[in-house]
């Protein structure tokens, strides 16, 4: 079945079974490998992408549900000013270690700051609670969110 959606600003059409996971469409059909698979069951958030500006887990999203929507992956997001602010904050605070959770974490951070430009530490922790990291113990990532918040992501 042909499914159309907007990906990082461009229209794309894929011809796949509607149950195919958005994650597999991105990685296998569209060769966008910045979105990672950590668990395949919606637990870890490594596969986070934005759909109509909201973060979702692409590993459990059937492509049928993405039809006619707007998807932003790290490949598209990295071209934005907001990315620069967030990425610099992650670098400053040591928010990325092995890097496998990082693209998802950065998109989740964007979603937090868009909805709540000045979160408290607790609010940042709540907002990132669906993105697991095994390297940092989260403090550095939370610090990065707060740092990016200070600078403002300038939407």
């Amino acid at each position: 079945m042909k499914i159309n959606f907007k990906l990082n600003g461009s229209n794309v059409t894929v011809d796949v079974v509607p149950s195919k996971r958005l994650l597999d469409v991105l990685r296998e059909d569209l060769h966008l490998t910045g979105t990672k698979e950590g668990c395949g069951e919606g637990e870890c958030g490594a596969c986070t992408v934005l759909v109509d500006n909201r973060p979702i887990n692409s590993c459990i999203a059937p492509i049928a549900n993405i039809a006619n929507k707007e998807v932003i992956t790290i490949e598209g997001f990295r071209e934005t000013k907001a990315y620069r602010v967030i990425a610099d904050a992650f670098a400053d605070m040591g928010g990325s270690q092995c890097g496998f959770c990082t693209p998802g974490m950065i998109l989740a951070t964007y979603a937090v700051l868009r909805d709540n430009p000045h979160p408290t530490e607790e609010e940042a922790r709540i907002a990132l609670s669906g993105n697991l990291c095994r390297c940092t113990g989260y403090q550095a990532i939370v610090n990065a969110v707060l740092k990016a918040s200070e600078k403002g992501i300038k939407l």
Partner: peptide
């Protein structure tokens, strides 16, 4: 799909 897609999941890159 957050439950059904997990229940019917087999492996990465597999429908």
């Amino acid at each position: 799909g957050t439950d059904l897609m997990v229940q019917k999941h087999v492996s990465s890159l597999v429908l």
